[in-house]
Design a protein around this nucleic acid. Sequence first.
DNA 1: CATTCATATGTTTAACTATTCATATGTTAT
DNA 2: ATAACATATGAATAGTTAAACATATGAATG
Lengths: 110, 110
Amino acid sequence: MHNHEEAVKRVKADIPDDELLCDLGDLFKVFGDSTRIKILYLLFEEELCVCAIADLLNMTQSAVSHQLKTLKDAKLVANRREGKTIYYSLADDHVKTIIGMGFEHITEND
Amino acid sequence: MHNHEEAVKRVKADIPDDELLCDLGDLFKVFGDSTRIKILYLLFEEELCVCAIADLLNMTQSAVSHQLKTLKDAKLVANRREGKTIYYSLADDHVKTIIGMGFEHITEND
DNA sequence: CATTCATATGTTTAACTATTCATATGTTAT
DNA sequence: ATAACATATGAATAGTTAAACATATGAATG
């Protein structure tokens, strides 16, 4: 094995907490599904009820509801009730920023 | 079913291309694994050879190599050869920005 | 209070994926 | 050329997960 001990020492000190890195991975995992990306994109425009999302994506209400739960657990979307209907919206601006950066990366590399 | 036709019409026009959204999902999928996040974080500091990364993460060379391939396919890392050794580094600044945004999101929500 | 509507949730299954193990490739030195 | 080293790759396996299906919750209405 060649000598890389110096580099290892330099880097080792600055490794963030393992739990933090796992949380980061878990957050991006939520973005890492095209259905969820689509839902987030829909909500860029305006808040929508569950069945509107299901209509727009041509998916069952159940599938959409499951994914909305995942998004809500990650605090990427919020919801409010109005009678029988529940409207979902983006939770904050990080969502747009993160997706925007991903978009840039893709479009800048062919 | 209640009436959400207006909202559906408004949003429907602005849905990006399906392929783009899938590509976006695929990109974030690459970030969505704690091992790959850790590798990227290590490379924040400086370029590293494969076995240094394996050392730092306490993983086999093979596992690291597989993940580096995934990262390279997504154009998140680049590499250069120096003799028998291959050094990996971050491909561009999007990586830092995207991870930084994810970090903010996590830390701002407890 | 029973029914209907909108949404949520538990369970199952098929597809995907991270790691391991074994092996191959490519480089340097003897 | 052959051996040793650094890395890559193919195949197998175990764990994860998205969607489908069936069912449950919770709100409005008659």
